[in-house]
Structures are given as structure tokens and as C-alpha cells.
Lab assay of single mutants.
Amino acid sequence: LKTAGVNTTDKEMEVLHLRNVSFEDAGEYTCLAGNSIGLSHHSAWLTVLEALEERPAVMTSPLYLEIIIYCTGAFLISCMVGSVIVYKMKSGTKKSDFHSQMAVHKLAKSIPLRRQVTVSADSSASMNSGVLLVRPSRLSSSGTPMLAGVSEYELPEDPRWELPRDRLVLGKPLGEGCFGQVVLAEAIGLDKDKPNRVTKVAVKMLKSDATEKDLSDLISEMEMMKMIGKHKNIINLLGACTQDGPLYVIVEYASKGNLREYLQARRPPGLEYCYNPSHNPEEQLSSKDLVSCAYQVARGMEYLASKKCIHRDLAARNVLVTEDNVMKIADFGLARDIHHIDYYKKTTNGRLPVKWMAPEALFDRIYTHQSDVWSFGVLLWEIFTLGGSPYPGVPVEELFKLLKEGHRMDKPSNCTNELYMMMRDCWHAVPSQRPTFKQLVEDLDRIVALTSNQEYLDLSMPLDQYSPSFPDTRSSTCSSGEDSVFSHEPLPEEPCLPRHPAQLANGGLKRR
């Protein structure tokens, strides 16, 4: 031991701790050491302190810390799992109470259905409401065949629209698609105040090879029609059969078919879209009749726009005509997947739907009320060519290029400059510069009032120099000039209409 001194630092001082000593042992101690050379000694003081209470040693090893962490984590996880189980049990009790009230408590799974309603004014964004509309049932219905791709499903009954099956008599087919079909039928007692009145209706139903998605689409269309409500110039929902059998959606019946066929059937002799010497046209149409058709469609679209509904496929083929020549817009409630459109795929009647699409819908897939206005301009062109085919002879690839360059279709022969300028306004490259349906209704209403009933179509000018029955994407082998976009001569082996020498072909294109 070194004694503290003047020249001794703290580091040089050493402390020796002795245990089991008493206060009597306190004092100075000297350590002597010697050898043959000499003797040396050092002294140190022993200080006795009071004994401290002994405390248990605390484990601070890493293993002990890990044990604490794992135990704490396990406890927290157990609490979370327990909370989830309690929540599930409570929510399951509430669901079972709800389904027992709906009398569908025996169901095993559900079809996820979404009601898609486009509400954005400047995009294709949609509001999806995840309302459960249908659930599968283990119960089988008697007297009705089961669908191959869709098991029997039981829908919640809506008393406002439900019609008993025994009050619906199915008739002949009116048309069909890939998985759905429409048949003519007679409904008894659609009007609650007149329970014995028989009404001719159209009934939409699924085919035998339909899938769950097809069922989902049909129900979504029905729900959309319920929500949009009734208007004179749209196909209205009349009722539905949802209980004890396949789903039947009952809508208004339009006896004169779609507008395109309606116009073609009323072309003057010699100007029909397909040469037929025995062709006997229906009643002749006046200019006022054509303007009235456009006015009614505009009114229907104005109503749909007021309900925040974007059609996305407005064309003469999707406008139906009733016995009283009332125009009714159809298929506005269809669920369309705008992100998976095949631009080169034709519709069932051979038309390319892209020829009715606005550039922003075609290139950027942006659907708005103003893109519907563009389609309405093409529909106007169809009306005043009596069912002509837009951009005849123009392949899709060429159409993309022409639209980007600002080309537009030429004025039809039997169309006034004012109406043609309306078409051109609908085809404005900037969507915000196109008229609204409200403005179109006002303009067409004024034109109808000024147009005489006696103004019949000028038969001295050809209505349509093209054969719409030909595929639109076909290139002409005998077109006049180098560019078949601006002219389209008859093919030698097929009868077509004579070309008027002083008139540019109706399907020609102009640059805006």
C-alpha cells in the first residue's frame, strides 16, 4: 500500500477492503520488508465503517432481458387475439339477427356486388357501394332449370318492384348476347291500381351458361335502374322476379327496335343500305322527324346527366323506338370495365364501338358527360344519314391518327348547316368547349319548333354512299384517289349506291 502524500496522485493510491473487522481494529498499520540489502516499511491507516445491508444481486445478463421482452410480447399478442375474438363473436351475433329477418339465414357465401355510379365530372372515377344484393341458397326452386355456371341464388325481396312469376307470361326471344337474352312477355297487374291490365314488356334474363359475374352484372344493372328513376326518353324498369327461380328483370318494350335499324328501314327506295329491288320502305321521314329523334335522345341524356350517370356507349344501336315513335335510351345501367376495353373487338352487330368514342376516352380512358356529348355528335350523324356507319372504310389504326390530326366527318347530304355545326361543336377537341346536354336540348327544341312538318328529305341527293353492312375495317380495292379515307367507291362485286358527282362522300373527313 502506498501512503497518500504531497507527490502522490489518486491513481497511485490503493485501497484495500477488509471484511470481518471490528471498531477496535482501527488504527495505523505498518508493513515491514527487508533483505540483505536493507529494510523498508510503509504505513497505512485502517478505517472501520459500519456494515452495509446486503441486497440480492440483480440479473442483468442479456438472457434475462430477452426473457422479459418475449414474455411482454406474448402477453400483448394474447390481449389482441382475445379482443378480435370477442369482436367477431359480437358482430356475428348481429349479422345472424339481420339475416334471420331477411329469411336467408341458411346461406353459405355471398357474391360481392358493387353498384357502380359514375359521379366525377372530369374523370372516370366511380363510387362503389358494397351493398350485398344477392346471396346463394341451398334451396332449389321447382319447375325452373338450374344454371350451369351459377347455382340457385336467393335475393332479398323488394316489394316496390317484385312481380309474382305467375303473372308473367314469357314469349318469343327479342335478342341475346354472350350470356344474357331478352324475350318478349306479357305482364299482368304491373299497375297496382289496375291488377288485371296486360302490358307487353321485355324481360332480361341469363342464359344457361351464365357465370356468377353475369348474374352480378344483371343485378347491378337492375339496381342502377331503380336508383336513376323514370323518364320518358329512357328504358324504364317496370319490375322484377327475384324469388323462387331465376332472376327476371322486366323493362319497357320498344316494338320498333333500335334507332339504327328504324332509320335504315325508312330509307327511300333505291337508297337503302343494302340493295333490294323488292324493298318496301316504312313511312317516309321528314326533316322534323329526324330533328325530333335527336331532341328526344338529348332529353334522355340530359336526364341521365342530372342523375350523375355517364353512359359511355351512346349510339343509335343503343336507342330503342316504341310503337308511338318515342326514343328511349337503353343500356345506361350496364357495368362496363373501362380499363379492359378491346379497341379492335367488334360488337355483336359488327360495329366498332371506338368510332363513337371521344379522343380523351379513346386515348386516356377518361369518361365524362362531355365524352358522352362527343358520342351524341356521332349519333346525330347516324340520324341524318338514316343509319349510316361512321368513318366507313377507315381502319382503327388510321382512325386514331386522323382524330389526333383533327379530322372530322363531313356534313351529311340531308343536314342543315346549323345541325352540322352542332355536330362539329360536339366533336370539339377540348371537352370543356363542347355543349352540355342542357344546351343541346334548348337548341334542338328551337330547331324542332322552326322546322315544318312538310319538309321531307331531299331525294335528289344520296343519303349515304356507303354500305354499312360491310365491315368498317375493310380497305376498299376500288376507292377513288389515293386515300380511301376521303372517298369510298362501290366494290365491283357488290351493289352500292351511285356516287353523286358534285357531292363529297358523306363519310369523308374534314380537318377541324
Rank of each mutant, 00 (worst) to 15 (best):
S469G: 07
A298S: 09
I447M: 08
R267S: 00
Q284K: 11
Q264H: 15
P435T: 03
Y344C: 00
D244V: 10
S255T: 08
L444V: 01
P173S: 03
Y262H: 06
E482K: 15
K226N: 06
D209A: 08
G350C: 02
E212G: 12
I447F: 13
E212K: 08
S452F: 06
K346E: 15
P269S: 07
G270E: 13
M357V: 04
K288R: 11
C293G: 04
L450V: 12
E176Q: 14
Y344D: 00
L271V: 06
G393D: 01
E418G: 06
C415W: 00
G387S: 02
L263P: 01
D425A: 10
S306A: 09
Q264E: 01
E176G: 04
D443V: 11
E272V: 10
I188V: 05
P431R: 05
S475N: 12
E252V: 08
W374S: 07
L218P: 02
A240S: 04
F332C: 02
A305G: 06
A330T: 02
N325D: 10
D445G: 12
V183G: 15
L463V: 09
D191N: 06
H311D: 00
C478S: 11
K411R: 08
F384C: 04
E186G: 02
P281S: 12
L440V: 05
L459P: 13
S255Y: 08
M205T: 04
A265P: 06
V430L: 08
L238P: 05
R312P: 01
Q465E: 06
A294V: 02
K308Q: 11
D443E: 07
K438M: 14
L215V: 02
Y273C: 13
R260W: 00
S286A: 08
L386P: 01
P412R: 00
G481A: 15
S220L: 03
K172I: 14
E221Q: 04
Y391H: 10
A202P: 10
D364H: 14
M224T: 11
L184S: 15
V249F: 03
Q243R: 12
N318T: 00
D483G: 15
S467Y: 07
N196Y: 04
C178G: 02
P195T: 08
K207Q: 04
P268T: 03
C274R: 03
L314V: 09
F179I: 03
Q181K: 04
A254S: 09
L218Q: 02
Q181H: 09
G388V: 07
V485I: 15
E405G: 06
S287C: 08
A305T: 14
L362I: 08
Y456H: 14
E455A: 10
S255A: 15
K256Q: 05
M222T: 04
Y275N: 05
D289N: 11
P281A: 11
V251G: 08
L380R: 04
N276D: 09
I228F: 13
S475G: 13
Q454H: 13
V183L: 06
K345E: 03
D443G: 11
R351P: 14
R312Q: 00
P268H: 04
M357L: 06
V354L: 03
S389C: 03
P281L: 10
S286Y: 12
L463M: 08
P195A: 09
K288Q: 07
D458V: 07
D193A: 12
E323G: 15
G387D: 03
V373A: 03
P390S: 02
V321L: 09
T436P: 09
L190Q: 06
Q439R: 11
N236S: 15
K232Q: 14
F363I: 11
E360V: 05
M327L: 10
P468S: 06
N417D: 09
Q465R: 11
P173H: 03
P435R: 04
N258D: 12
R260Q: 01
I235V: 12
H369Q: 08
N417K: 10
M327K: 10
G406C: 00
G177C: 03
E302Q: 06
G239E: 15
E418D: 12
Q243H: 08
I235N: 15
R336L: 04
C274W: 14
Q296P: 00
S208A: 07
C478Y: 07
L314P: 02
K328N: 14
L237M: 10
L206W: 07
A240V: 07
E397V: 13
M461V: 07
M301V: 08
